[in-house]
């Protein structure tokens, strides 16, 4: 079973993933050749593996929304809100001397509850009231981010129990714990998408909401579940965020929104919905992280990176468009050849 999955990953059922794999390897090669003493060191690899999970969770969240043909602009805001809620509980526990274990359980519970409610709000607006996902999540983005600013008055909250910081900074057998958590989440999302009714229905809605509705799918229920799962993943991102930084400042990670959309699109998820797979998105996340680390080592300014991400997003989208155009044109040509063939066959 496991080897079959591995085989499928290696043989690339999806041609886009093959391209992604080649790009990823090319970037690794270029980085390794350009700075052999800095890039392929165990410290750099370890730091890369601990840097991206907080953002990787947001990308997984964005992926779920996009597969149904929607988008969630509130992922970073949800992560901020849940982060503030958890940070309040954790820092209060340090002050009051509550046992760290109890505080951590309470913080995680708070994150689950807050993110579920946030997702329910998004899902209800989209599924019940028929508000387009862009506008609904644009509004809730303001609401959630505004709430986290109100709750903290714009200040950062810091000082969490030592035990909590292990999640973001600790290693297990030399592998960052946050990286392990990310892989586990990615595996669960992949099971959800490929093995469950919910996942199947999400792809259906993404391809055509009308068809899925008339095939007996309860679109409302599926969409609300999707946005709750999306918010849940965003909430989990905040666990890693706050434990890595040992503090929470509202407005943290706003640049992640663009990057999340970038990797999801780069990873082969169709912004119009209906297509997307986990291996592609994971490779896209790796590509982004490797490039990011490379730019950091070469000391590029954050402004240049901002420019880069915008440029990369547009480039990927244009390339996708051109490739799709070419393949659809080829399909039409093949189809017309086929018909010619049968025509002559009939006349002879």
């Amino acid at each position: 079973m496991k080897s079959a999955a591995m085989l499928r990953l290696v043989t690339f059922k999806n041609p886009k993933n093959k391209t992604l794999f080649i790009i990823m390897m090319a970037i690794v090669l270029v980085m390794a050749l350009a700075m052999p003493s800095k890039f392929l060191t165990s410290i750099n690899i370890q730091s890369m593996a601990s840097q991206f999970p907080e953002f990787g969770f947001l990308a997984l969240a964005m992926m779920l929304a996009m597969i149904t043909g929607g988008i969630d602009l509130s992922v970073v805001a949800v992560a901020n809100l849940t982060g503030v809620a958890a940070a309040k509980i954790l820092s209060a526990s340090v002050e009051n001397g509550t046992p760290a274990g109890t505080a951590m359980v309470m913080a995680v519970l708070a994150i689950l509850v807050v993110s579920a409610l946030a997702g329910l709000a998004n899902g209800s607006l989209i599924a019940f009231l028929g508000v387009p996902p862009i506008l609904a999540t644009l509004g809730t983005q303001g609401l959630f981010m505004g709430l986290s600013i109100v709750l903290t008055k714009g200040h950062s909250i810091s000082g969490f129990p030592e035990e909590f910081m292990v999640i973001g900074n600790g290693n297990f057998l030399g592998i960052p714990i946050s990286f392990i958590l990310f892989l586990a989440a990615a595996y669960l999302v992949s099971v959800l998408l490929n093995k469950t009714q919910q996942g199947f229905n999400m792809f259906m809605i993404g391809s055509s909401p009308v068809v899925s509705k008339f095939s007996g799918v309860n679109n409302t229920k599926v969409l609300i579940k999707t946005y709750m799962l999306t918010a849940l993943l965003a909430g989990l991102a905040s666990v890693i965020m706050i434990s890595r930084a040992n503090s929470m400042r509202p407005g943290y990670g706003t640049a992640y929104l663009l990057q999340a959309i970038l990797v999801v699109v780069l990873g082969g998820v169709d912004p119009d919905g209906g297509f997307g797979n986990i291996p592609g998105v994971i490779m896209a996340i790796f590509i982004l992280q490797i490039t990011q680390s490379g730019l950091n080592i070469l000391a590029f300014s954050p402004f240049f990176k901002k420019f880069m991400w915008g440029f990369a997003l547009l480039l990927v989208m244009v390339l996708n468009y051109l490739l799709q155009n070419r393949s659809s044109r080829r399909k039409i040509r093949l189809m017309s050849n086929d018909t010619k063939h049968t025509d002559t066959g009939e006349t002879v």
């Binding site: 663009l258 997003l313 989208m317």
Partner: peptide, 15 residues
């Protein structure tokens, strides 16, 4: 290139 307007303008604004 027929790109979605939100993603385009998010990208160009960053660019």
């Amino acid at each position: 290139f027929k790109l979605p307007t939100l993603i385009t303008t998010l990208g160009t604004s960053s660019l």
